[in-house]
């Protein structure tokens, strides 16, 4: 059916709000971030191109480098940890029991709340010394109190645990949904071949849902790169800035200290990492469909 000229204008008017808002609030700021990262932006002075100077400065800046390190560590550790545990949990979900629905609901709910709230809820439980609940339990069994939020190592562990608490449930539920779509007869064949439960999971379930798991891996990784709220609420970036994320670095260098060049270069780095992950995700999605 041919579209009349007047209708064409009406269609384009329908597109207008989306295109304008997306351009103003997403695209323009992104381009500005690129521009600032290659110039020496200071208020009241004309922009001057400085090449890669800001990137070199950013990579010499301990705060930025350490925050990139912790962000990458967070993204990799939580992605691997969540995926492995979610696969185990999803296979456990397939065993028929009386409270399956309740279990899935309880485990899913932490992903529906504010990340800040999650951090605050855990903060007291992980208090150092004999005050935190977790330490009390450890000491009850004769262990030694752990400096959860006060030692750099345990603060990181604490953050990983909270991230796991948030994401494990929805991830497992998603994998469970994929497992449900596997053809039952494949398991019957496996059973006839004399496969045990572990072999069924390893040779049937996991290979069949692997493409979806891979897409989820890239999703978790790019979500991990944006981490900010959990450390902010739990440790406030401490102790001694060891749990600063890339977002912290952008906020401190950019908004607190007004170092736009370094902060923008950090912004471009986080954008490039996210974009590469999204491209991989797209490729995997195509392969799965094709």
């Amino acid at each position: 059916m041919k579209i009349k000229g007047r209708d064409k204008i009406q269609y384009q008017l329908f597109l207008l709000p989306a295109v304008v808002l997306f351009t103003v609030f997403v695209m323009v700021p992104l381009v500005m971030c690129f521009v600032y990262s290659f110039t020496n932006y200071t208020v009241g002075k004309p922009l001057e191109f400085v090449g890669l100077k800001n990137y070199i400065a950013a990579l010499k800046d301990d705060l930025v480098v350490d925050s990139i390190g912790f962000t990458l560590l967070f993204a990799v550790v939580t992605t691997v940890g969540i995926t492995v545990l979610a696969l185990i949990l999803a296979i456990a979900f397939t065993k028929n029991c009386y409270t399956g629905k309740l279990q899935r609901a309880v485990l899913y709910f932490p992903s529906c709340i504010s990340l800040m709230v999650a951090g605050y809820a855990w903060r007291n439980l992980m208090a150092s010394g004999g005050e935190g609940l977790i330490n009390r339990i450890i000491m009850l069994f004769g262990g030694e109190a752990v400096g959860w939020l006060s030692s750099p190592f345990w603060a990181k562990m604490g953050i990983f645990i909270v991230a796991l608490w948030i994401d494990l449930g929805w991830c497992a539920t998603l994998f469970y949904a994929y497992i449900q779509s596997i053809d039952e007869s494949l398991y019957e064949v496996a059973l006839m071949e004399g496969a045990n439960a572990f072999q069924k999971a390893w040779y049937v379930t996991i290979p069949l849902i692997w493409p979806s798991v891979m897409i989820n891996l890239t999703l978790l990784l790019s979500q991990g790169l944006k981490v900010y709220e959990i450390p902010q609420a739990l440790t406030n970036g401490g102790p001694m800035r060891t749990t600063y994320t890339m977002t912290h670095a952008i906020l401190v260098r950019g908004i607190t200290e007004w170092e736009f060049g370094i902060a923008s270069a950090t912004g471009v780095i986080i954008f490039l990492m996210t974009a590469v992950l999204c491209a991989i995700q797209l490729k995997l999605g195509e392969k799965k469909e094709g």
Binding site: L15, A18, V19, F22, F25, V26, M27, V28, P29, L30, M32, C33, Y36, S222, L225, K226, Y228, M246, T247, I250, L251, G254, I255, F260, A263, S264, G267, V268, I270, F271, T274, A275, C278, A279
Partner: peptide
């Protein structure tokens, strides 16, 4: 073309746009 343009948002983390947005 506009369709692809609007989908580019998937690639853009809020963190990369945060400083210019603050200024805007």
């Amino acid at each position: 073309g506009i369709r692809i343009y609007l989908l580019l948002g998937f690639f853009i983390p809020f963190q990369a746009t945060l400083l210019p947005l603050y200024q805007l």
